[in-house]
Design a protein around this nucleic acid. Structure first.
Lengths: 217, 217
DNA sequence: TTGTTGATTTCGCAA
DNA sequence: TTGCGAAGTCAACAA
């Protein structure tokens, strides 16, 4: 039986479950389904274990953290108890995330359109950096927002940049391109309603054409 | 050693780790830190196990799902192997999420201001439902966006609703209230800049005053 | 330490 | 099945 009280209140009735206590102090309660824990306490936290009451196997764990969140675990029966230190974690290596998309697109800005050139990546503005700032064939400024999955939030973000950039008489007029591996219908509708062009990117294609120069052949 | 290829590619070097195989078929690879798995395959998926090569303990697991994502696990050594069916999960009970906030506020709309009355919850618009539609003391329409944590996204969401609602001559003018347990400074600034009133809610207070009628005493 | 943003987000609900 | 929005989001990175 598990009870959490903190950012919300959550209760788990009595049942057989898997409890992980990790080296960093975190405690996770897993069921036999689902890819995330049902209930947990993130480190840093402290675990206080109350030994089983006499004549019963019931023991009580109280896990607390600094902000005062608490996780109570009432253990009726222990089916198995194993402790194996796992040691250092070498770390996960990832490829194909948004940062890679942005880097590949920066190398091949002509994917955005004939005659496009890169001004700079992470073009700074007072409200955050624009992913790519480019110039089109006519020399006009183009702000590009790159996303792996294009949703409304991304369109709003680009809209804020465009509003701000278009107040700069040296840059204006600045047009926008919303580029993503996948663009949700609502995001596309909102973008096009605001005069922002949408472009679906293909990661494999981009990776297969590492530089603009290859496109000359 | 674990390799994932699917929505992205990810690689885990050889190290000691915990592997969970759940009843729903999902496979999770955990390190000794962190509240989420390093690498995993969500159900539904199929696990193919290749027995250890002769003269070694190395076995190979191949987990695949319908879209063609794959998880390869190369097991050099097994420190412990335990199988315990956990049975049915009664389910997690939560209290204090956004839906509860909205319900409590709907019962006590005068928290929003003297003489406020509720028109309806989840007031429909073509771009999604407004959390609460109210009328103020003067009969003017008020759209309320309720959030647990008020951030810029929520202000943008309410702004879209207001833009649209104010095109309706029968409703206009519609004012906005952004109500949340916690409002981030940037969200407050943006909201007030757009003439949207911000209101910080106290969940305990709201729960303690379950109906407007109590406020009459 | 605090804030912002991406994520194999995950998860639940509704159309 | 798909789409959309909330989440104790988590976790990495910058200020």
């Amino acid at each position: 039986m598990v009870d959490y009280a903190g950012r919300l209140t959550a209760h788990l009735p009595e049942a057989t479950r898997l409890i992980l206590v990790k080296a960093d102090g975190s405690v996770l309660v897993h069921a036999d389904v689902g890819s995330k824990a049902l209930n947990w306490m993130a480190p840093p936290c402290t675990l206080r274990e109350q030994d089983p009451v006499e004549d019963t196997d019931v023991s009580l764990w109280t896990i607390t953290n600094k902000p005062g969140e608490t996780l109570l675990i009432r253990m009726i029966e222990v089916l198995q108890d194993t402790e194996i230190p796992l040691g250092e974690e070498p770390g996960l290596i990832k490829d194909g995330v948004e940062a890679h998309l942005q880097a590949l697109l920066a190398e091949q800005v002509t994917v955005l359109g004939e005659g496009f050139s890169l001004v700079r990546r992470e073009f700074p503005t007072p409200i955050g950096p624009v992913d790519l700032m480019c110039r089109d064939a006519t020399g006009g400024s183009v702000a590009v927002e790159v996303k792996r999955r294009g949703e409304i939030d991304g369109v709003e973000q680009l809209t804020r940049y465009l509003d701000l950039l278009n107040r700069d008489v040296l840059l204006a007029p600045v047009t926008g391109v919303f580029a993503a591996q996948e663009i949700k219908p609502q995001a596309r509708t909102l973008a096009e309603d605001r005069g922002i062009r949408c472009l679906v990117l293909d990661y494999e294609d981009l990776r297969g054409l590492p530089t603009d120069s290859l496109r000359l052949f």
